[in-house]
Amino acid sequence: MRCLKCNVDLGDEYQLCPLCGSQAADDKPVIKGMRTAEYPDVEYRPYPKRIVLGFFIAYVLACAAGMAADYALNRRLGISVFAALAMPCIWALFIRPFVVKKEYVGSYLVQDVFFLAILMLYISKVGIGNFSSALSGGIPILLIVSEITLLISSLIERYNRVNAIIYLLSGAVADIVLIVIALISKNVSLIMPLAALGVAIVSLSIIKALASKEFNEEIKARFKP
């Protein structure tokens, strides 16, 4: 086949010229002995970005409308805020784990802890009147559970160690923040934040004892400029 308008050869499979779109003529090609190297037939898939973005905007607008209605009717923010916070938790705890691979377990744990911590803070504020129960109980327990999970995953799978080191270090920093908050506000107990910090340090020590070189190299690679 040939395009007479562009004066170029085309493969036998072409109905239209890819350059100008005109009908291909059934002429003999000028360059002899060429075979078309086929590409797969592709079904065009646009990025799912717009759909996700649409859902996110719809969710934010729905939450905002709920809060506004709640405040207008009751002069307080109650169930709508809870619903707004619960949505990411449901997503993080019940939906995302089924669509992620095990290699991301650490990063999802961190995100789950973050969402759940915010939810706990909100519930404690609404239910008890201050954040003390979440800061002295719920959040440190959550951190302890995630730290133990990270330790177990790194003991089972060698390759998870490198991520576990970083996430455990992040957990230790979060524990220290909790301890500082507990020290500043006198009505928050220190026991559980200290226990969480202890678990983080013990977990890091176990990994360091088992894989000292990996531990040192991971820290060096992450923080060496």
Binding site: V8, D9, P18, I31
Partner: peptide
């Protein structure tokens, strides 16, 4: 110049 055209999206 002799030219042969191929395309991935015919």
């Amino acid at each position: 110049v002799k030219v042969r055209i191929e395309c991935n999206d015919k």
